[in-house]
Computed example of a mutant assay.
Amino acid sequence: MPTYVYETIPQNECEEPVEFEIVQRMADDALTKHPETGQPVRRVITGGLSIPISSKKGGCCDSGCSCG
């Protein structure tokens, strides 16, 4: 199951958002409230994993490591 990142939605200017992670099924609805405090939350969209791929055989260092 994937781990999702959420953050609290500040209710006033003095509050800072607090991030937390939770494991959920992909079919589960996104949380709307913090599971412990009940404070409103939103899901944070994060980037995925990027794997560099070289179009040149051997890349920049001729070792075949795809670093180019």
Rank of each mutant, 00 (worst) to 15 (best):
C14M: 15
V41C: 07
Y4L: 11
E15C: 11
C67D: 01
Q39W: 09
E15D: 15
I51K: 01
Q24S: 11
P10S: 13
N12D: 14
D62Y: 00
S50H: 09
I9F: 03
G38C: 07
I22G: 05
E21C: 15
Y6N: 04
K57P: 00
L31M: 09
S50G: 02
S63D: 07
K56F: 10
I22D: 03
I22H: 05
G38F: 00
T8F: 01
S66W: 00
A30Y: 13
V44A: 03
D29G: 14
R42A: 09
P2H: 09
S66Y: 01
Y6V: 02
V41T: 10
T37K: 04
I22E: 04
V44E: 02
R43W: 06
P35M: 08
E19P: 13
L49S: 07
C14E: 14
I51W: 04
D29W: 07
C61E: 00
G59K: 01
K57S: 01
R43K: 11
T3F: 12
T46C: 12
C65F: 00
V23Q: 10
L49D: 08
C60W: 03
G64C: 01
E13C: 13
E16K: 15
K33H: 13
E21W: 12
G68C: 06
I22V: 13
E13R: 14
Q39I: 04
E13Y: 11
E13W: 10
A30Q: 13
E36H: 10
T8Q: 11
S55A: 04
K56E: 08
A27Q: 06
G58R: 03
P52F: 05
L49W: 03
L49G: 05
K57M: 02
K56S: 07
Q39E: 12
L31C: 06
Y4A: 08
L31W: 06
E15M: 15
L31I: 04
S63C: 02
G59M: 02
C60F: 03
M1E: 03
G58E: 02
P40D: 08
L49I: 05
V41A: 08
I9W: 04
L49V: 06
D28Q: 12
D28Y: 09
P10E: 15
K57L: 05
G64W: 00
C14N: 15
I45F: 09
